[in-house]
């Protein structure tokens, strides 16, 4: 296993573009701490974001995983190109000739993807923990370590998304086209949602159906955290509305994403096995 990871590491780390992207990704992950420094001090209006409760445990788990989830696009580029470059440089052919089996090839990519997700999760965990320790109103151990399922969901979300990128890289073989396809797929899911909502079902059934589409399922894992903020909730209350959202991570949502991950990885393997290089 470490041999496969090491092989992939050599390939990635010696590529300047990937190295820059990976580094900036992790710097961005860390930079979320800078949000704490956002402070407006304009005469009577004093606003300090850190005081708004976004760094309270356990809310911070939700908030930080949601925000850092956006940065995954950086790694998506790296992953799509690490797959498609093997085709454009024909190094996949040489790898197989040199004695890597097709299974090992896919496995080395998948292990890399899992490591990326794992390191990201650890990063977010540590950064959030430090931020929370500094700014949270509650620092009891039991509160700090509650709601950690957001981290689990974050990990699954990344693995699922990156596996999708891997699959697209193998399917399309050109990194630019694969990324285009990713965007196209996003549009496609939105289009299907629109069609279903318009022609077939009501909002709730549409949401249920859409929950089975890969990108939508990944999105569903972590719901937007903003409406949980006190400020937002009191504003809504003042307007006489009631927000009743379900923020929690559901087991079946995780299962759907894990299912897609399996489908992507096995289809990648099947594609590689079937193709003549």
């Amino acid at each position: 296993m470490f041999r496969l990871l090491h092989i992939e590491f050599i390939k990635l780390w010696n590529n300047r573009a990937s190295r820059v992207l990976i580094l900036s990704y992790f710097i961005l992950l860390t930079s979320i701490a800078l949000v704490a420094a956002i402070k407006f001090d304009i005469g009577p209006i004093q606003f300090h974001l850190a005081d708004q409760g976004i760094f309270n445990f356990p809310y911070i788990w939700h908030f930080n995983t949601f925000i850092t989830g956006i940065f995954k696009l950086f790694l998506a580029i790296v992953i799509v190109s690490m797959m498609s470059n093997e085709y454009s440089n024909k190094t996949i052919k040489q790898n197989l000739i040199d004695g890597l089996s097709k299974k090992e090839f896919i496995l080395s990519k998948f292990l890399t993807v899992v490591s990326f997700a794992l390191i990201s999760t650890l990063f977010v965990f540590v950064v959030s923990l430090i931020l929370g320790m500094g700014y949270s109103d509650y620092t009891e151990i039991s509160i700090i370590f509650s709601d950690l399922e957001f981290l689990a969901a974050y990990f699954v979300k990344l693995v699922g998304f990156f596996s999708f990128c891997l699959f697209l890289g193998i399917l399309v073989k050109r990194s630019a086209f694969a990324l285009g396809f990713l965007i196209l797929w996003q549009v496609f899911e939105a289009f299907v949602r629109g069609m279903i909502r318009w022609k077939l079902f009501d909002a709730e059934t549409t949401d249920t159906i859409m929950g089975y589409f890969p990108l939508n399922a990944m999105w569903n894992l972590l719901k937007e955290p903003f409406s949980r903020l006190n400020a937002v909730q009191s504003a809504v209350k003042q307007m006489g509305e009631q927000l009743n959202l379900n923020y929690h991570v559901h087991w079946y949502e995780i299962l759907i994403v894990l299912g897609w991950t399996a489908i992507f990885i096995f289809s990648s393997y099947a594609l590689l096995k079937k193709r003549d290089l």
Binding site: I10, K11, N14, N15, R16, N89, K90, T91, K93, Q94, I97
Partner: peptide, 12 residues
Amino acid sequence: AIIERPNFYPYM
């Protein structure tokens, strides 16, 4: 084995 063209990682 070498097949047709040499295939290596160009950036390495």
